[in-house]
Design a protein around this nucleic acid. Sequence first.
DNA 1: ATGGTGATTGTTACAATATAACATATCATG
DNA 2: CATGATATGTTATATTGTAACAATCACCAT
Lengths: 160, 160
Amino acid sequence: MTHIHNHSNCIQTALNNASQLCSQRGVQLTDIRKQVLELIWENHHAVKAYDLLERIKPLQAAAKPATIYRALDFLREQGFIHRVESLNAFIGCCDLKTAHEQLLLICKQCNDVEERHADLVMQALAQELRNAKFVAHSKSIEVHGLCENCSQTFNEEISA
Amino acid sequence: MTHIHNHSNCIQTALNNASQLCSQRGVQLTDIRKQVLELIWENHHAVKAYDLLERIKPLQAAAKPATIYRALDFLREQGFIHRVESLNAFIGCCDLKTAHEQLLLICKQCNDVEERHADLVMQALAQELRNAKFVAHSKSIEVHGLCENCSQTFNEEISA
DNA sequence: ATGGTGATTGTTACAATATAACATATCATG
DNA sequence: CATGATATGTTATATTGTAACAATCACCAT
């Protein structure tokens, strides 16, 4: 994620892609699902399920935990979002086209989550799994730390 | 993890190493902490905090959630256990000597968790983090699937 | 030995995350 | 417009994890 970008593009792209893929797949991007996806895309932070619940209530007065978790399940099955395991939280998937296995870089400072393909990491991992004779069904690679911007800020602060 | 092994060795080694490291570090491996570590090492499955709570009650009648979570915090700080993020569960660390960043292979069938060094994966990841200019504080790599034994069993079943 | 200090544990209460189960409504299609 | 599948409403509860403060214990200097 570059620090400065036109985020409304991100949202629009995500919604358009999801909409199109749902049509292709014959599944329904209902109001609730779309609203949840839109709320997740409000920024590049990982979002908690109960935060989504609070934020969807103006739109869906009847919303309950199950409302959110069902929408999240759907969006995950369709590959539109990732679950950040180490945070019990969720982020929009930036890359619906290619393989849905990515590296997540989670900044402790600004809370942004950056998604990266990291082909070489995935290749090395695939080799390691062959060595281990382990048949993988799903992979999660999550790194916590400071993103480029925040580590710069940090350095400026301590040298000031 | 090989399927057949003398597990009492695993437990003894883990407890001895922990004990020795605590002495070196001037921290206390109290009864509770030792008992929790021993319970975690009862097998190579990931263990849930509240399962530990039930299982420590015969030994510590007063045990409450905080009892377990405090012990888990301590054991993690000391690097004696890993938290399996994708399971909200914990396993003993098999490798106290080298870097504490490993690949966890989690079998859906038998629930065993295998820890692997995966140097090449870590190298590729380090390179990717340099590319991203991301300063890592902690890493979690978790793969769900079938271990060697269980995938063999599975193949035998479907060919039978 | 003894008293002070920080570390550890006891205890109560509660917050945060997630699911089960069943009723109702909506949709897509014949 | 009837029907089955999909989606949502609703209530209740299970699971996971913390906060806050009191009591106790371990260690060290005197």
